[in-house]
Amino acid sequence: MKSTKFTPVPLTKAETDKKWWEIGDFFRRNSLWLLMYCTGCCAIELPPAMTSAYDMERLGMGPMATPRQADILLVSGYLSLKTLRRLIYTYEQMSEPRYVVALGSCPINGGIYHDSHAVINQLDQYIPVDVYVAGCMPNTEAVMNGFVDLMDQIKHKRANGWKKYHENYSWYKANQITSLGEVDVHDEFHE
């Protein structure tokens, strides 16, 4: 009988794509570039994470200048209606695959601003969030731990927020419009 050990079984297209995707995941989880959207006090935890105390770069992470270049959208702190609109715009500009990490309790439930008329309480109603780092504010170890969690999720193919955004786009859009309202005037002062 002919041995099948050394004759490679031809892979289907889906399987090849999966292989490539896994290889890509290795690169992606080892080179996570951040776009920091820092509107709240949690941002103060990032300098120690980047500099010699915790040295984010040893994990291959680093800050980037624009959403086009970045992999992670790092939302730190509360989001007012004005900033939320800009956050969504920024998120939609990022290249895929893209991940969202939310720092602090504000994006989870509004934190200390939960009863403000201008602040939204749950970020994941508007864009999908992959990792939450809870705490008000979370300390730097927790922030680093959040990033390591994200890497783990990417490795196990659980960081699928960006896919969910495509699949449930109408739901997200409806939420966005409910909160922000339609814009009639298009100029620098509205929208």
């Binding site: 624009t66 956050l87 920024t90 298009h186 100029d187």
Partner: peptide, 17 residues
């Protein structure tokens, strides 16, 4: 690549029309 409009550029999240 995903094709985007010329106006859809990075503007530090400002809306410019």
């Amino acid at each position: 690549s995903r094709k985007v409009e010329l106006m859809d550029t990075y503007t530090a999240a400002n809306f410019v029309h």
